[in-house]
Amino acid sequence: MENKLKEEARKLLKEGKVDYIVGYGKGTVKFRTSPLITNKEEDIEGLVINPFIANNLSRYPAEIKGKLGIVVKGCDSRSLVSLIQDNKVKRDDIVILGVPCEGVVDIKKLVEQIGADIDQVKEIDKEGDNLIVKMDGSKKTVLFGDVIFDKCFGCEYPTPLEYDILLGSEVSPRVELEKSLKKIKEFEDINAPERWRYWKEQFSKCIRCYACRNVCPACFCERCFVDVNIPQWITTYGSWQDNLVFQLIRTLHVAGRCSDCGECERSCPVGITLRSLQRKMVEEVKGLFNYETGVDKDAPPVFTHYEATDPEEFIK
C-alpha cells in the first residue's frame, strides 16, 4: 500500500495534477504519525501507511490553497464528502487517495493491554490479526481488535466511499456496533442527575485549548461563536458551565457533519470523553432523518434540508 501511495503521489506532483500532497509521515513521537504536507517530490519517500495513522487530514483542504492530493481513511473520506456537500471543498480541487482501513491503534488501549509504559516499547509489528509488541528483552502479542479505537468497531465504511485512487483492496466492515456504542449505552442507563454530574466533572477538567474544535473538519466556521464577543455568548475563560455549553453547541453545530472520526476525543489533552457526545448525535441523526454523514456527495446536508414528514411527536 505504502509503495503504491508513493508512486501515485510522485506521479501526481510530477504531472502537476496537484500542488500539494497531504499524507501521513513518520512522527517524532513513538508510534505516532504526523501529517506530511509537501509540494516536493523528494519528501514523498517519507509517506507512511501503518496502523497508527490517526489524524483526520480532511481538515486541510479548506485551509491550504491549491489542488491537493489527500490521503484518507474511511471515516476521513466521509468528513471530506461532508465538506464537499457544504461547498467548503470543491471536488475538482482534490485528488483523493483512499486507504482501506482495518482500524487505527489506540495507544492508550495498547498501553493498558501490555501493562507497560509506551516508552519501554521498542517496536510494534502487525502480523495478521495480531500486534507483536517488542519491549526490552520481552515480547507480547495482543489482538489487533483489542487495541483499536472504539470508533473503529462500529465503522461501517472502512473503505473510503469517495476516491480517485484506491491504495489497496476493499476491507469488509467490522460488525461490532455494540462494542462501539458500549460507552454510550452504559451512559444512557444511569439516571439523569448522574448523567449531568458526569458531564459537570468532565468539563471541570476542560482548559479551553480548543483542540476539539480545531482538529474537527466539521468545525469550519470562519469565526467560532465562542470567539464572538459582541454579543459575548460564552466567556473566553472556562468555568465548567461555559465549557459544557460550548461543547453542547459545538456538538449541535457538527451534528450531521460528524463522521465519528474521533479526533476530538483523541486530541483532548485532559481526556474528556467527547466522542460520547458526537457519536450519540450520529445515532440520533440517523434515527431521526435516516441520514448518514458523507456517504453521498450530492445529497443536501441534513440541516439545510427538510421533509414534510419529519418526526414531530415531541412538539405540542
Binding site: R195, W196, L252, K280, M281, E284
Partner: peptide
Amino acid sequence: AVTRKLLEYVG
C-alpha cells in the same frame, strides 16, 4: 429534534 435528544442525553 436533535437539540432535545442531546439535552436529554446529558441529563
